[in-house]
């Protein structure tokens, strides 16, 4: 416990980016769930280098950290929110779904929407019990809805997300054919960014390969 308090104290005293990074790294290395609130605080310091270290530390804490992330989603601190979405996307925990969908459909930052699309593609929902079907439906609908995003990189991320969700084999046949429809659209001339077409074609090729 003492070690945790020491690490937090050092972080609070850090007065340069260097010191902040060192202290954040030290705190993260404890892989102690009690360090989560402080690591989340680092996300709001407007210091990308330190935030990156905190993001890795939070991801290393695993899915137990999700409730703290969700309760600290700070709507007023844009940077902190963006980093938190990144953690949620990496953890792939179903409790993050609402925040990820909201980010994909409403965030002003293309990189945040991109990360959210990737996260939704990686969400693994347990459908065998029947509980996962509804969130899975929401997840796919959000990816389908965002296919008209104005930024190529978000549409690119959507192709990868749809590919992964189709690959998971959990989609109902109706959802699956909708998802295929969007991949075909993104692989066609209706999509004006070359690399997005390339990626959608690759997805279709892999999905239909014997």
């Amino acid at each position: 416990m003492l070690k945790l308090n020491d690490a937090i104290a050092q972080l609070d005293q850090a007065n340069s980016t260097e010191a902040l990074i060192v202290a954040t790294r030290q705190l993260a290395s404890l892989t102690n769930l009690a360090a989560a609130p402080k690591l989340i605080e680092v996300l709001s310091f407007n210091n990308p280098a330190a935030a990156l270290v905190a993001v890795d530390g939070l991801i290393a804490l695993g899915q137990e950290v999700v409730p703290s992330i969700l309760s600290n989603l700070d709507a007023h601190n844009y940077g902190a929110r963006a980093w938190a979405i990144r953690v949620l996307a990496d953890l792939g925990d179903v409790r993050g779904i609402t925040a990820l969908i909201d980010a994909l459909l409403n965030d002003v930052g293309p990189s945040v929407r991109r990360t959210a699309a990737r996260g939704l593609g990686d969400l693994r929902l347990k459908t065998e019990t029947g509980d996962g079907q509804e969130p899975l439906n929401r997840c796919i609908q959000a990816l389908l809805q965002a296919r008209k995003d104005g930024e190529w990189v978000v549409r690119y991320a959507i192709t990868t997300g749809l590919e992964r969700q189709i690959q998971s084999g959990q989609l109902s046949s109706a959802l699956k054919s909708e998802a295929y429809g969007v991949l075909e659209e993104l692989a066609s001339d209706q999509e004006d960014t070359n690399v997005v077409r390339q990626r959608a074609k690759l997805a279709l090729q892999r999905l239909t390969a014997p």
Binding site: T115, R118, A157, T160, V195, Q198, R199
Partner: peptide, 12 residues
């Protein structure tokens, strides 16, 4: 190109 696309996937 597939290598490039895979590298891009990893950066999303």
């Amino acid at each position: 190109n597939i290598h490039v696309l895979e590298a891009m996937d990893a950066l999303l």
